[in-house]
């Protein structure tokens, strides 16, 4: 079995996570009430899944170590493309922005929080593109307002109105 060094590391990491999940699921299953039913109780299938995680985790780690013993390990391909912005930093920023958006929904309302979110998310995603702030602002405001009225008035779905409500 030929695996690149990166793939081996990924297999070991996935294997370790799988073992961790196995332990966690088995431990949590001990608290599940079975009510002494005929056949198997509510903790049986979770425990079986914990065993699955254990076996697969061991297989992944074992496979990675077996592959590391082969001499001609292919090198990892270098990422292509222009290095500009993006990367884990942009992902973390996007997650924080999304979490803020969700947290602000009830208090501020769908329309305002959506406008702010969309504008800032466009800035994160646009990278080296020309920053046309007026266009970005319009793109943030028009869909937020249109979607709010479309879903609330036409599709009868309630959305938080917040300070505008």
């Amino acid at each position: 079995m030929m695996l690149s060094k990166g793939a081996q590391r990924l297999d070991v990491l996935t294997g370790v996570i799988s073992l961790g999940l196995s332990a966690l699921l088995f431990w949590a299953s001990l608290d599940v009430k079975d009510f002494g039913s005929i056949g198997v109780g509510a903790s049986f299938v979770p425990k079986l899944t914990a065993v699955l995680f254990l076996l697969v985790g061991l297989a992944l780690i074992g496979g990675a170590f077996a592959a590391s013993k082969t001499s001609d390990v292919p090198a990892d391909a270098k990422p292509e493309g222009e290095q500009t912005t993006g990367g884990i930093g942009a992902v973390a920023l996007s997650v924080v922005l999304m979490a803020g958006y969700v947290a602000a929904l009830d208090a501020v309302g769908f329309m305002i929080s959506s406008v702010v979110y969309v504008f800032l998310q466009i800035l994160i995603l646009c990278k080296q593109h020309r920053r046309r702030y007026l266009m970005f602002a319009l793109t943030s405001v028009v869909p937020a307002v249109a979607l709010y009225y479309l879903f609330v008035d036409v599709f009868d779905i309630s959305l938080p109105a917040g300070v505008l409500g």
Partner: peptide, 30 residues
């Protein structure tokens, strides 16, 4: 895509919130 995807995210929030009208589902989606 940098214009399209934030609007898609807005639709995602509507979809997750619209099921039970609770923010917990939006958090789950995230």
């Amino acid at each position: 895509k940098h214009i399209l995807l934030p609007v898609v995210m807005m639709l995602c929030v509507i979809g997750a919130y619209g099921i039970n009208n609770r923010l917990f589902d939006v958090g789950c989606m995230l």
